[in-house]
Design a protein around this nucleic acid. Sequence first.
DNA 1: AACACATGTCATAAAACCTGACACGAATTC
DNA 2: GAATTCGTGTCAGGTTTTATGACATGTGTT
Lengths: 111, 111
Amino acid sequence: MSERELRRNLAILPIGTVRELTLLTDRQIRYYEQNQLITPNRGKGGQRRFSLNDVDRLLEIKDFLDAGDSIKDIQEIFEKQRRKSVGQPDSETALRRSLQKEFAQIGRFGR
Amino acid sequence: MSERELRRNLAILPIGTVRELTLLTDRQIRYYEQNQLITPNRGKGGQRRFSLNDVDRLLEIKDFLDAGDSIKDIQEIFEKQRRKSVGQPDSETALRRSLQKEFAQIGRFGR
DNA sequence: AACACATGTCATAAAACCTGACACGAATTC
DNA sequence: GAATTCGTGTCAGGTTTTATGACATGTGTT
């Protein structure tokens, strides 16, 4: 996995931050977790730690729900996405990689 | 400020995460704040919220201290940096901007 | 009418964080 | 060499945040 992807998958955010970033309630976030739409890590004391990818995912979930999809629908949508992107890098990943070198110069994590 | 810079400056991390990311102790982090080497935001209840830039900064501080610089030395170093980068965008920012459009396609925050 | 869904709300407990104070070893200054 | 400064450790006491589980509710579906 690339630097950038790594960073996006770091479990660093408490639920409070995610709440502010997504404008969802704790209840909603936990409910989506309960239904396996997201699977945040847990810190030492058992508290949830979300990644930026989780935040993305939650915003997607929000859109889908607003669009009338049910939780189960969304589960299937995500499942299809997962199956489709198995194995070979998709174009997004390819693009990302092509710019990786440049960005490696930028930002502390890349130093 | 660009999308990317915005994101780097979002105050999203609690001190526990920063502790894990930097391997500093709470005491150290607070002491550096007390000496104005960093100025994290505060959440609603008064708890510190750090940005990714803050994390960068803390890692720099660590390096400087390891290299034998004192807190005051570091204050001056940062002050000089600040003065130098006032006004016009530096090359790093320019590079960032040039790649901004591409990256706007990638990741939720850019959608 | 009964039920499923997505969410609100409340109680209770644990974890994380806050500030302030005192201690301490290693340098530095008097 | 005694006193001071610096960066950090640690502890106490209080506040904030998060966790789980249960019950409630409105909207739509069988």
